[in-house]
């Protein structure tokens, strides 16, 4: 049989082929999905019912205190503290990450020890420590060790509760940020740096224009988590009497004993803030996804968050979970 004949050979026909070709394809039924959905909905309905009908939630009180000036002041402080710590800790984190990756063993080791130390010490403990700084170092002097200092400051005047919170949280966050940034930097292929060198780009230019932008997609999701953790983590400053959102609420319920409704006020504010942060994170991630092909839109993200509305493209790789 020649090749030509083999290609034009008649195909084997069977009775009923026509019907098979015209048949409608019916997907398998999945009754388990329906049963589990109904069970979960019953639980959700129970929770919602108790939220609405239990009078001890005092939703009227929640409404009355929600926009109280003292609470809004606390909210503003929480936001400021979060923003300030974010900026300073990431600047410090970039420096630490670059030091960690440096060929200079002294810089690399110092960075490693810093990260080890500040990742190991709980931030609450650190905060108390900074708050008590005056008892450890009554004065802080700026200068070269063993020589006469240039400037001397009384520590007691320096470390207010707010500054202790800022410094403690910054040092803590920077250690985590450094590890996230380092992970992002090493994920960029070495060929990128070589190509940039071969083009005659300076080291600084290679870092800011070639390596860091490519590291960002790896840095941002983890950083988003870290930022949300920070926003909520600022609530620990209430233990050193800094009037953030949580402490403002505590001050009020210490007087009127309406503990639950006031905690709900703080809860709702934190929910709102974190929702806003997640939205911003989405846009930043999309910005840095340049050149990556598939771009999902804003509404696709929300549909992704609310799976009752089917996503346009189901994840095939996760099919096994269904």
């Amino acid at each position: 049989m020649s090749v030509d004949e083999a290609v034009r050979r008649p195909l084997l026909a069977r009775d009923g082929d026509e019907e098979l070709l015209g048949a409608r394809l019916v997907a398998r039924r999945k009754p388990g999905q329906w049963i589990s959905a109904v069970l979960v909905l019953l639980v959700v309905a129970g929770i919602v019912k108790s939220l609405v009908t239990n009078p001890r939630y005092h939703w009227d009180v929640v409404g009355a205190f929600f926009l109280r000036p003292s609470i809004l002041d606390g909210l503003v402080l929480t936001l400021w503290l979060t923003a300030a710590v974010l900026v300073s800790s990431y600047l410090l984190g970039i420096v630490l990450a670059v030091m960690r990756l440096s060929a200079n063993p002294v810089l690399s080791s110092v960075s490693a020890v810093y990260i080890w130390f500040f990742r190991s010490v709980p931030p609450l403990l650190q905060l108390l420590f900074w708050f008590q700084m005056a008892s450890l170092y009554p004065q802080i002097s700026l200068g070269i060790p063993f020589l006469k200092p240039f400037v001397t400051i009384e520590t007691a005047h320096l470390f207010s509760g707010l500054l202790a919170a800022f410094v403690g949280l910054t040092f803590d966050m920077a250690a985590f940020a450094a590890e996230i940034i380092r992970g992002g930097l090493v994920s960029v292929e070495a060929g990128q740096t070589e190509a940039a060198k071969a083009l005659g780009l300076s080291k600084a230019r290679i870092f800011w224009r070639i390596v860091l932008p490519q590291a960002m997609p790896a840095i941002i999701p983890a950083s988003g988590n870290l930022l949300i953790g920070l926003l909520k983590g600022t609530s620990i400053v209430s233990v050193i009497a800094v009037q953030d959102l949580l402490y403002s609420v505590q001050l009020i319920y210490a007087q009127n004993y309406l503990v639950i409704p006031l905690l709900l006020v703080a809860t709702i504010w934190y929910l709102i803030l974190v929702t806003i942060l997640s939205t911003i994170q989405f846009f930043v991630e999309r910005h840095y996804a340049r050149g990556k092909g598939a771009r999902s839109g804003f509404w696709q993200l929300w549909r992704g968050q609310l799976p009752l509305v089917p996503r346009s493209r189901p994840r095939r790789d996760l099919e096994v979970l269904r």
Binding site: A198, L199, G200, Q214
Partner: peptide, 26 residues
Amino acid sequence: SDRAITRQRSRIGMVFQQFNLFPHKT
């Protein structure tokens, strides 16, 4: 110095096996 080497490299073009285009740039 890095600077002088950078200047020398800018007069030599190089093309790599794996292209090494910058993926975040057009």
